[in-house]
Computed example of a mutant assay.
Amino acid sequence: MKKLFVVVLLGVFFISIFGFKVIMVTDVGGLGDGSFMDGTWSGIVKACKELGIEYDVIQSKEQSDYIPNLSKAAEIADVVFAVGFLMSDSFYKVAEQYPGTYFVGIDFTSENNLPNVMTFTFKEQEGSFLTGYLAAGMTKTGKVAIIGGIPIPPVQRYAIGFLAGVKAYNQLHGTNVEGKLVYANTFIDPKKGKELTQALMSEGVDIIQQACGGTALGIIEAIKEENNKCSNAKNLSELLDYLYDNNGYFMLGGDVEQEWQAPGHILASAIKRVDVASYLGVVKAFNGEWTSGNVELGIKEDGEGISRMPFTKGLVPNRLLAEIEYLIKLVKEGQLVIPSTEDELNAFRVKKIEFPF
């Protein structure tokens, strides 16, 4: 046992001498989105700081940057992260050319099973199901919506889960809340996000789920402007009092707990633990625990969920919070399967569920 301990220490010592570097390459969304990209980066930073290894980021300005940026990273790093579904084709082309470098893909997978490639995908529909259910239970106008970025598979699963949550609430409570889906067709245009939000609010929508990356910064701006105009609140306490008693507006965050970006204006967030995925990718490569292939994370694996609602939990009825916790339990036990396709959504029924309270 003592000899094994010495060998492990020597291994870490030699890695430290010769260096170990991790580089994350972003898609065009880049850092600063407050959700998907920032969440992935936070997991990398956390792992690298804990392990005492070097890390860096290369940000892509346009899609033509993907291959050169990934190639540049592969030449100087031991682990290269590619973040975003739109990078998948470039990712596999470069990974094939650099078999001695570990490659971690976030939000996509492929049948191209390279030994130096590990990918992480998520059951986005499970997290957004919870926020969709919450939205249906909290709306005062009977209209909620989700704004997606580009209609790629992860975003489509987000939308299907959200609409399934609304549908489940309607079936269990005999309500008729309307759920609407619109696409911004971009992840990097806050102005478009604001315009779409203002249009939805004019239609009577009072709660909007974001699944559009940096475009959601415009959703936050529009909702803050409207709430502040109507409430005349001077602080968070006055805002929450107003929202409790009146018809205010809320955004639902995506990927990370976004509430801190606009306390009181963001009701909750659908959590997609990209930080857990990126953290695991670094640790497995550094510790020699690498396994190629895809890892899928959902509620059961603590890779999907709903935020703690640090500012707004007091606005939500206890009964609704308890129902959401019970639905989480059913998903973990396999008794409730959240739809991930349009056909599954159309056939989705939950009337057999009975809450034990």
Rank of each mutant, 00 (worst) to 15 (best):
D107R: 06
L114S: 09
E75S: 13
I106V: 15
A77M: 03
L130Y: 03
D107V: 01
A73R: 02
L86A: 14
F108R: 05
F108L: 13
F129S: 13
S64G: 05
P68L: 07
M87V: 10
V104D: 08
F81R: 01
Q97L: 15
F122D: 09
G132D: 05
S110W: 13
T119Q: 00
F108H: 06
L114T: 06
T131F: 00
E126W: 03
T139G: 07
D107H: 06
P115L: 08
S64V: 08
T121G: 08
L86C: 03
A77Q: 08
A77H: 05
V117E: 02
E96C: 02
F103H: 03
P99L: 14
L134M: 02
S88K: 15
V94W: 09
E111V: 09
S71L: 05
V79T: 04
G137H: 07
S64T: 13
L134W: 04
I106F: 05
L134Q: 02
D65P: 03
K93Y: 05
G132F: 09
N112E: 12
P68Q: 11
A77Y: 09
S71Q: 14
N112L: 14
I67A: 11
D89H: 14
Q97F: 03
D107E: 13
Q63L: 12
I76E: 14
E96S: 13
A73V: 04
M138N: 10
Y66D: 14
A95P: 10
S64K: 13
Y92E: 05
F129T: 10
D89N: 14
E75W: 00
E62H: 08
E124T: 04
L86G: 00
F129L: 08
T119M: 01
T121I: 15
K123R: 14
P115T: 11
N116R: 06
N69F: 08
Y92C: 07
K72F: 06
N69L: 13
T139D: 04
L134T: 11
T121M: 13
G100R: 06
F81M: 03
D107I: 01
G127I: 12
D107Y: 01
F81L: 00
G84H: 06
S71D: 11
A82T: 00
D107L: 02
F122S: 12
N113E: 15
K140C: 09
F120T: 07
T131G: 02
L134H: 03
L134G: 02
V94C: 12
T139W: 02
N112R: 15
I106C: 04
A77G: 11
Y98H: 13
S110H: 12
E96L: 10
V79R: 01
I76T: 15
S128D: 09
L70E: 05
D78P: 04
Q97G: 01
E126M: 12
M138H: 07
G132V: 03
T101P: 11
M87F: 01
L114I: 10
D89Q: 14
K123C: 00
Q97P: 00
